[in-house]
Design a protein around this nucleic acid. Structure first.
Lengths: 116, 116
DNA sequence: TCCATATTTCGACAATTATCGAATCATTGG
DNA sequence: CCAATGATTCGATAATTGTCGAAATATGGA
């Protein structure tokens, strides 16, 4: 993932309505949610939600598929994973950055970053 | 970390000059870097860098200390860790989100931490 | 004290972002 | 084919963000 793309992904999540929508999609899993359902759940007009969904899609964080009249959006876990990976490698100085994951993470080979 | 704070942190990193500055600070470690050095490294006027550093500081991502005439900025790893934690818990649907850590993370029981 | 250095604050301005109703486009059922 | 439904696009507008030079604020040294 390029820095350009990272900026877009961060910017896409840096807005309350979009973050809310994305969280809903993450919860919804593979089933996803229709644009209208998202608009209602988040509490914004359909046109506004459409604007925000376009930004999330542009950042690669969500995908869409048409199902009859509705357009179903789903979270793109791979893109989110890439973002997490970038942040882990470039914005975390050491082990202290990631929360514990019940076993020792093998971050040693993610690049030799250093000390604090 | 509250959603409000998360939005601010994401927004702070969602800008090329700020992301560049933050990465430099992460690399610099505890020594940190002076505002002027950051401005030169990133390639923006001092006043612009000051503007960006204020935003990063406001988001809690960096700290500052005066050392003689210079003001030294350092990355706040704890804040970054909190951001990573939030994203992991709220924006990652399952194991697929975090980069491989040699064993499956136990994210199933971590839903307690944040509420809408 | 006076001067040089390091940084921030203060305008002013351009560019981007967010919002929302109205209009438009696509799909389905009758 | 036509009406109804679900969604996006299109204005227009308000608000926020980014930029940069000039002025103001601190600090240290002669």
């Amino acid at each position: 993932m390029q820095a350009e793309q990272i900026i877009r992904a961060l910017g896409a999540l840096a807005q309350d309505h979009r973050l809310a929508a994305f969280r809903l999609l993450v919860q919804a899993g593979a089933d996803g949610m229709a644009a209208g359902a998202l608009a209602e759940a988040v509490g914004v007009p359909a046109s506004s939600m459409s604007f925000h969904l376009a930004q999330l899609a542009n950042a690669g964080l969500i995908s869409q598929r048409r199902q009859s009249r509705s357009i179903i959006y789903t979270a793109n876990y791979a893109a989110m994973g890439a973002l997490m990976g970038y942040l882990t490698e470039n914005c975390c100085g050491g082990a202290s950055c990631l929360p514990e994951t019940s076993c020792s993470p093998s971050l040693a080979n993610t690049t030799e970053r250093n000390v604090a």
